[in-house]
Design a protein around this nucleic acid. Sequence first.
DNA 1: AGAGTTTTTGATGAACTTATCTTGGTAAGC
DNA 2: GCTTACCAAGATAAGTTCATCAAAAACTCT
Lengths: 224, 224
Amino acid sequence: MRCLIVEDDPDLRRQLARALGDAGYAVDVAADGEEGHFLGDTEPYDVVVLDLGLPLIDGVTILERWRSAGKTVPVLILTARDRWSEKVSGFDAGADDYLTKPFHMEELLARLRALVRRAAGHATPALECGDLRLDPRAQRATVGGDPVKLTSHELRLLTYLMHHVGRVVPRSELIEHIYDQDFDRDSNTIEVFVGRLRKKIGQDRISTVRGLGYQLIDPETNGA
Amino acid sequence: MRCLIVEDDPDLRRQLARALGDAGYAVDVAADGEEGHFLGDTEPYDVVVLDLGLPLIDGVTILERWRSAGKTVPVLILTARDRWSEKVSGFDAGADDYLTKPFHMEELLARLRALVRRAAGHATPALECGDLRLDPRAQRATVGGDPVKLTSHELRLLTYLMHHVGRVVPRSELIEHIYDQDFDRDSNTIEVFVGRLRKKIGQDRISTVRGLGYQLIDPETNGA
DNA sequence: AGAGTTTTTGATGAACTTATCTTGGTAAGC
DNA sequence: GCTTACCAAGATAAGTTCATCAAAAACTCT
């Protein structure tokens, strides 16, 4: 999952970036409103953390622009505790959730998980696909109850696929959502990771559709 | 589906071509207004992505000429964020949708899907024909709920036929919409693909009309 | 700072898709 | 009823895409 953080306070920004990185997100950061607006406009994020008090362009304005441009990416806004009115205008502008500063990092992570989950149209917190389970909170995957040891990028790949079970996902999309901004596109990393994942979770769980992409097979619908 | 991209910025052009290619379109590109106008005039596209700021002939002018020549192909125009007035004149010239640069590639794809769908007079996201279903986003086809494994070209062929259920589609039209510009016309590839499709989705779903073309049979209207 | 992972890269070989060719069948026209 | 044109089907060949491996580079953690 790929996440954008728009926050002008350097300390908090760094703290957020680190926490979300540890939680398995590919993280991009913006220090002011202009940069934040630009990034959110151009890159495909799965969730955005947006501070309201920003230099150059205000958070609410950014959000309004994204929404009027048809962007549906889930956005969580951060407000100071005393800025009560900001919160309201944030929601009016189309925010999906808010959090008042200061906050517990754990709570932020929980809310983000909920947002990502809802955006993908899932009801349950844990992702499932046959006897393959993934707990985004614990960053743990199990096959038939047995834990599988995955490295961080293997986990990212699996997480994205499990949010899109049954869909044929192009390699380019996987790259966009697993890596952050500056990544060299032309490489075979995805193939290598798919290979490793298959070795760990079972060969025939991920099928490749030549020329199109990869597909996580749902045994229920008996995918492909 | 066959798509024309008219865009003068080389980076964006390549990026677009790649993304649309990944999404299963047959893609032609034009780098300036003259080439774009010519291609759109002579080749039958299903959708066009048109930048407004172009060398030689401006995008709005191209669009006006196409429209006054009776072309109804859906056109999505790209505008820079600050060119507010361009957007308006683009609509006046007959654009079907617009997107301001920079943009999410996924949003562009979603809008193109919507355009193609609308142009073919469909309401539901998934294409249906009897118990044959096709989800263009997931690139998955099912017959009576059972998934059918199709290769990328088989998928393109079926997609086009499903957008024109019941119509007798000439082989030449299929070739034009499945392949891009430079393709040797004199070959029997389409016959071969129709044969393979029939084998996978059922023999009597596609009927051949001698001397005219192929027809995807809709059980409702009991086609043919 | 160094050892152990993890990630990336590059190369090689295998697998698959697609295009072409050939042969045989089927419908239309005379 | 015969000829001709068009279409179906199978086999083959070519070209592309993908999988796998090994090794180098980057990163972590002590």
